[in-house]
Design a protein around this nucleic acid. Structure first.
Lengths: 121, 121
DNA sequence: CTCCTACATCGACGGATGTCGATCCAAAGT
DNA sequence: ACTTTGGATCGACATCCGTCGATGTAGGAG
């Protein structure tokens, strides 16, 4: 109990609006936390691989398929997908019994904006 | 213990070569770990702020200056700078008693490449 | 040589993270 | 109705991470 409500990644949920240019004008504590939250979502090799799988699939993929390919327990895969979903990097769609996840390409592209701006200012 | 093995976090050190497009062809476990390592370096709000400070400074900044502005203990700032340095995102230069850190803009730009759709190749 | 300053490193601590197996839940099929 | 199946959640555990204060260390100033 207690820990359930876990607002675990409440802060990171905005996919694009969070993307303050890291090299732009002064980044405040709040913006820094938002940016860090996005990076945290990608700070695990298995999540990077999941994102890569979804990117290559081009289409939505069900959890069972991902679980099989990544070689982790089903619960762990769910855990990672929840983090990615919470960060806005992937989308979720329920089709009957199956849950299909797909890459949010716009969100992914917006992460790049965090860097490019300011680098070539 | 002698000087210091600056190679402390050898795994993440390659700035650009690590940057496998996250949306490109199959990312193996090794490449995923390298990419995740880079993101891990930016997965903390205080490190994001440090990078931002260095970006805005345009020039190298000494640790004492950063410590004062970020409001953390000196040891903690050193800890974060070491992580950023280990990831290749920032450079270090010793000037007498002072240590000056500066943003490695090439490395930062290369992180953006991770997100670029690999198709352009 | 002695002291001070700037920085790195250490020891410790609490909190977050990744993982598993087990459990719960809802939808589908029988 | 019962059973099965896909997926989310839980409990427990080991590890990692961020932070501080304290200590170590090297360069400059006196």
């Amino acid at each position: 109990m207690t820990k359930m409500g876990i607002r675990t990644q409440a802060l990171a949920v905005r996919p694009a609006s969070c993307c303050v240019p890291i090299a732009g004008p002064d980044v405040g504590p709040g913006e820094a936390e938002a940016a860090a939250g996005l990076f945290r979502a990608l700070a695990d090799p298995n999540r990077v691989r999941l994102v890569n799988m979804l990117a290559n699939a081009g289409d939505a993929v069900c959890v069972c398929d991902l679980t099989e390919r990544i070689g982790l327990s089903q619960g762990t895969v769910s855990f990672h997908l929840k983090k990615l979903f919470g960060s806005g990097l992937i989308d979720r769609e329920q089709r009957g019994t199956w849950a299909y996840y797909s890459l949010n390409r716009a969100a992914l592209a917006s992460v790049a904006d965090v860097f490019v701006e300011g680098v070539s200012r």
